[in-house]
Design a protein around this nucleic acid. Structure first.
Lengths: 301, 301
DNA sequence: TGTTCAAGTTTGTCTAGGACAAAATGTTGA
DNA sequence: TCAACATTTTGTCCTAGACAAACTTGAACA
């Protein structure tokens, strides 16, 4: 039996949201301990995870929270099938995933390294890493892989990407991009992917790692003379939180500094935020850079 | 003016905690918007950050939350002076710190890289990285450097160490060490230093990164056939929490698997825990490895 | 002097249900 | 087809009380 705090941590749904769903839709329906606290059975956590996936796809809670589990799984299965046919068929994906599930780490790393060499960093990121990330996310939702596999995979990718970054030129390139995530966003992988992508595009990246408070970012952008501040948001982040955080930062950041916000969250956010460039995919980076360089050439300092 | 959600994100203090502190200690004391919502002035965020530092040092809120700001800054200053006298300043330290404070990242990286080449990975870790880490911790306490500098430094060291790790042999070495940290311990640097150190000592390391739940570690050690599970604890961790966590893990871990606990916390812990090897410094690793190899040679599988 | 145990205090998390603004959706008219 | 307005949906914030876990204190004992 799981506490409301555990459910919040595991699903990313706030305690307030969990309580109000219970009041409005009758689900989740935790049993009560003697002291009146909610205690959630594990299968309700599973259903909440599934609901979370629907919400991330843009569905609204009123239509899905009260729906029976079998209906949800059936509908999600259809979506899975549909989305899978979109993507580049198979390729390195099943092989890497199988090696991962078998905990054959060394072989997985070699496989990925070979792929990176074959495709180049950018295509590797777009055609191999991004799809595998997505598939791992789905597999985790389905309970097919555990935290351990996720960590193993993440570590290997980190090693590869940092190697790629190390081998690019560091000095004197433009634009200068300051990369980080806001407090509360602790996912490194998206940030690192952006770093690698930008580096091979010839940008000069300075990464602060994850979780830099907004006020410190303002100061850092100034003292490091960044042209652009790039923030990464993971898919798990609430769109609301992301929007608030980035709007707050935009308000304090110097006018001359651009603010780019990357990550899958932005696919779910419609409304643009003034002065912020939203990059819902790594593929949006090259045109954004071309843009910037055009403008920089037009108005030299 | 900042909302309660922003304060939660920036300080890591939950909304519930912020509200109850206000009720009990009279601080924070946000103004109210027309609709009754709390709006915090930025200087209260600053004080909350300082309070957070005290809490991380083991202080309790009742004694510090209501204290006036000047008293807190004064006490923090004393703590810094006290901690400064412990260690003598050393060789490459001032140079790197100065470059860091000046945000001359590229030069700092080159300086560190050169040092690693000159000394070798192990001496580099013991004689350069560890002292600089300590000095940066103190400087941060003193308020001489900000989170930004800490992040910049940490990123550069990460790059260097991962490069070092990549260049070691991966296959077939012994012992097999599974490296990670427990949930709640999110500091990567110590883990990565141990990883680099063990790798050049000829151990075969598999890192899961930070924050792996204890139950998952048990399973991972089994399926990855680890000889040793290595956990890293940062200095910020409470000794009590560290002891409880590691004892819990020892109870569930298979008998045949050794458990090594590294990090500066163990200098403050007197009582040994049965079945756990405590390594208060990186320098304790070589004898521990020699030990293990002696035993492994005596009792071959 | 140091350790162990019980009593007392501090502290964070949980509860309930009401209120409201922002976002999404539905409806009307140009 | 698009813009403007009305309605519904939805998440976050509010107050204030309760309680258990964590920590501190003090007494009793080795």
């Amino acid at each position: 039996m799981l506490s409301i705090a555990t459910i919040e941590r595991e699903t990313g749904l706030s305690k307030d949201t969990l309580r109000i769903w219970e009041r409005r839709y009758g689900f989740p329906a935790p049993v009560r301990l003697d002291n009146g606290e909610r205690a959630y059975p594990p299968d309700q956590l599973e259903k909440l995870r599934l609901i979370r996936r629907f919400m991330d796809l843009g569905h609204r809670p009123g239509k899905i929270v009260a729906a029976p589990m079998h209906e949800l799984t059936a509908r999600m299965f259809e979506i899975d099938v549909a989305s899978r046919s979109n993507l580049a068929p198979a390729g390195p994906l099943p092989a890497v995933l199988q090696l991962l599930k078998a905990h054959r780490v060394t072989e997985m790393r070699d496989h990925l390294a070979q792929d990176m060499m074959r495709l180049g960093v950018q295509r590797f990121l777009l055609e191999t890493v991004a799809p595998i990330n997505a598939e791992i996310g789905r597999a985790w939702m389905r309970g097919e892989i555990s935290i351990v596999e996720e960590h193993l995979y993440s570590e290997q990718i980190q090693h590869l990407l940092r190697q790629a970054i190390s081998s690019t030129t560091h000095a004197g390139q433009s634009p200068r991009v300051l990369l980080t995530t806001l407090s509360g966003e602790e996912h490194q992988l998206g940030l690192l992917m952006a770093h690698a992508f930008l580096s091979v595009e010839g940008a000069q990246c300075i990464s602060l790692g994850v979780q830099t408070p907004a006020s410190d970012i303002v100061g850092a952008a100034r003292s490091l003379q960044a042209d652009i501040v790039g923030l990464s948001f993971s898919e798990a982040m609430q769109p609301r939180t992301a929007c608030d955080g980035i709007a707050e930062l935009r308000r304090h950041l110097d006018r001359g500094v651009e603010l780019w916000a990357g990550g899958a969250v932005w696919q779910r956010v419609r409304k643009a935020i003034t002065g912020v460039r939203m990059l819902a995919s790594l593929a949006d980076i090259p045109p954004a850079l071309t843009d910037w360089r055009g403008r920089a050439a037009g108005q030299p300092a």
